[in-house]
Computed example of a mutant assay.
Amino acid sequence: MAQLRQDYDKFAASGAEIVVVGPDTQNVFAHHWEKEHYPFIGLPDPDVRVLNLYGQEVKLLKLGRLPAQMLIDKQGIIRFAHYGDSMQDIPPNDALLDVIRAL
């Protein structure tokens, strides 16, 4: 999420909104957002309904949920999806911004 924070202004300037969904409770999210000063939306999903809906994978040997990044347009259509194989497998911001510009 720190990576997204670094280029938040570029995402906002492109008309995109960043929403981070995680399996934690509202209190955990609120504490983490306050501590890290994230400028984007955090959506707690303790029942993992949203995470399961979008197919975020769980791998117990890799310590839980793997990263998933999606670009969803204003009509709700997924225009880009990346499901990471590890916690380090996250596309660079420039790749996401290129997709946004192409929309």
Score class of each variant (00 low, 15 high):
33 W>D: 05
71 L>R: 06
65 R>E: 04
65 R>K: 13
58 V>W: 03
101 R>Q: 14
55 G>E: 02
52 N>K: 15
61 L>D: 15
78 I>Y: 06
9 D>V: 09
32 H>N: 09
15 G>A: 05
90 I>T: 05
91 P>K: 12
69 Q>M: 10
3 Q>G: 08
26 Q>A: 14
90 I>N: 04
93 N>R: 06
55 G>Q: 04
91 P>F: 10
80 F>K: 07
87 M>V: 11
34 E>R: 14
39 P>Q: 12
91 P>N: 12
64 G>P: 00
6 Q>I: 06
94 D>F: 01
56 Q>C: 05
97 L>N: 04
35 K>H: 06
60 L>W: 11
38 Y>T: 05
95 A>D: 15
15 G>N: 05
24 D>T: 10
55 G>I: 03
81 A>V: 11
38 Y>I: 04
36 E>G: 00
102 A>I: 04
84 G>T: 02
101 R>L: 03
59 K>M: 06
92 P>D: 15
85 D>L: 10
6 Q>S: 14
31 H>S: 10
89 D>P: 03
35 K>Q: 12
11 F>N: 06
26 Q>Y: 08
95 A>W: 06
28 V>W: 05
69 Q>P: 02
68 A>S: 14
101 R>G: 13
10 K>V: 03
59 K>P: 00
57 E>D: 09
55 G>K: 03
68 A>W: 03
50 V>A: 13
62 K>E: 12
2 A>P: 02
36 E>A: 07
44 P>Q: 00
94 D>V: 06
97 L>A: 05
42 G>Y: 00
90 I>R: 15
81 A>S: 13
65 R>S: 05
100 I>D: 01
1 M>E: 04
11 F>P: 09
48 V>I: 12
22 G>Q: 04
53 L>Y: 12
57 E>L: 12
103 L>P: 03
58 V>F: 08
6 Q>N: 13
10 K>I: 03
60 L>N: 11
28 V>Q: 10
71 L>P: 08
56 Q>Y: 01
84 G>L: 01
88 Q>M: 14
69 Q>H: 09
68 A>N: 09
78 I>T: 14
85 D>V: 11
55 G>C: 05
52 N>Q: 15
10 K>L: 12
23 P>C: 00
79 R>H: 09
46 P>G: 07
103 L>E: 14
13 A>R: 07
18 I>H: 05
80 F>Y: 15
3 Q>W: 02
103 L>N: 09
23 P>G: 02
58 V>C: 01
96 L>M: 15
74 K>S: 15
40 F>K: 06
19 V>F: 02
30 A>D: 15
33 W>Q: 11
78 I>M: 09
13 A>P: 03
39 P>A: 14
37 H>Q: 13
44 P>S: 01
4 L>E: 02
83 Y>A: 09
56 Q>K: 08
6 Q>A: 15
32 H>R: 11
96 L>W: 11
63 L>P: 00
4 L>M: 13
67 P>R: 03
77 I>S: 08
9 D>A: 15
59 K>T: 02
84 G>E: 01
18 I>L: 07
50 V>K: 07
66 L>F: 03
98 D>Q: 15
94 D>I: 04
85 D>T: 14
82 H>W: 00
27 N>G: 07
